[in-house]
């Protein structure tokens, strides 16, 4: 992909084909490249819709003042939301990676075969549950529990750490960063687990047996032979999980509290870039500049997910990734 991506560059038709063959090839390649057209269409539409509005450097500031009485002081700095996105995705991803490494290791090496066969579909199924179902579960059922039990407990035990201190009014609703992180974590775990698990399974069996035949235990074989063998895949699983986490909108919107400020603690409400796109769309109809700002934020989100996914997939170096339902 050193050059501009485009069908003609991707695969040159072999020389000496007739015009008819060439067009056949072209139409076939055209079918194969439909995802690419969609990606191009998405980027082009967003670029066009943004009207090439230049917000200057204030676009990167923390100053978000989209619909003031005096339009001249309107400001569209999305730094706060970038922070919200970064905190939720990064922490959720870190937790998810630890969990999914453990789960994948357990499924591949430590569970008896019949449980291992059962465990994989169950984790995959978790990836298939609609995000809106996670959202309503988080908002209606978990949020009160968090505000009454989890949040006070965490403030009590971890309150001395920066970012973990809050007054009861600040977590009264239960919604906030911590709940969003929790929901995001269990949403990302199945995806990263499946990726790590498949990488572990793709390791040649001979290598594992070699480790065991040397008198290593299952854990030592895992730790010193298999994990080093799939380092790259683990990293790319992290990237792909990050792409999912940062783009997740609906479930996060329902539990994050949607406060348009920098959060003071991990219990406070916040907004991510993705949830901003939803929460501000209503007012955007009356403020054309706000709409353009949102479109540009959407573009930023698109670029982030595009590059993260592209790097992750190239590192993974496999034909496919596992998705909900455990298709490989």
């Amino acid at each position: 992909m050193r050059n501009q991506p485009g069908v003609a560059r991707l695969s040159n038709p072999p020389g000496g084909m007739s015009l008819r063959q060439f067009f056949q090839w072209l139409s076939g390649a055209a079918v194969a490249m439909i995802p690419l057209y969609f990606i191009i269409a998405i980027v082009a539409t967003l670029v066009y819709a943004s009207g090439f509005q230049n917000f200057g450097w204030s676009f990167f500031s923390t100053n978000w003042n989209p619909n003031p009485n005096d339009p001249s002081v309107a400001a569209y700095g999305w730094f706060d939301f970038a922070v919200g996105s970064a905190i939720t995705s990064a922490i959720a991803l870190a937790l998810a990676m630890v969990l999914s490494l453990g789960l994948a290791v357990c499924i591949v090496s430590f569970l008896p075969p019949f449980l291992s066969r059962l465990a994989a579909p169950v984790t995959d199924m978790l990836a298939g549950i609609p995000s809106v179902v996670y959202g309503i579960w988080g908002y209606v059922i978990l949020a009160p529990y968090f505000s009454k039990v989890i949040d006070p407990w965490m403030v009590g035990t971890l309150g001395f750490l920066p970012g973990f201190n809050a007054t009861p009014t600040q977590y009264a609703g239960g919604v906030g960063l911590i709940l969003a992180i929790f929901i995001l974590t269990i949403m990302v775990v199945p995806i990263t687990t499946a990726l790590v698990r498949d990488s572990l399974r793709s390791i040649p069996k001979e290598l594992e047996e070699a480790g065991l035949a040397l008198g290593a235990t299952r854990w030592e074989t895992m730790r010193r032979v298999k994990i080093p063998f799939i380092q790259r895949s683990i990293f790319s699983a992290g990237l792909l999980g990050f792409g999912r986490a940062i783009g997740e909108t609906v479930a996060v919107f329902m539990v994050i509290g949607n406060e348009v400020t920098l959060p003071t603690s991990i219990f406070g409400g916040s907004t991510t870039m993705a949830t901003l796109l939803v929460s501000q769309m209503d007012s955007a109809f009356t403020y054309p500049l706000l709409l353009k700002a949102l479109v540009e934020i959407a573009l930023v989100l698109m670029v982030i997910s595009l590059s993260v996914n592209a790097i992750g997939l190239r590192l993974l170096g496999r034909k496919t990734v596992t998705g909900p339902g455990g298709i490989e």
Binding site: L36, L46, G247, E248, K319
Partner: peptide, 23 residues
């Protein structure tokens, strides 16, 4: 072609739904 088709397919699968919604 196949490699790139798969890559783009997988990238599209990872595109945030909200961005697709905007488009």
């Amino acid at each position: 072609t196949a490699t790139f088709a798969r890559l783009f397919g997988n990238i599209l699968a990872g595109t945030p739904a909200i961005v697709i919604g905007y488009t």
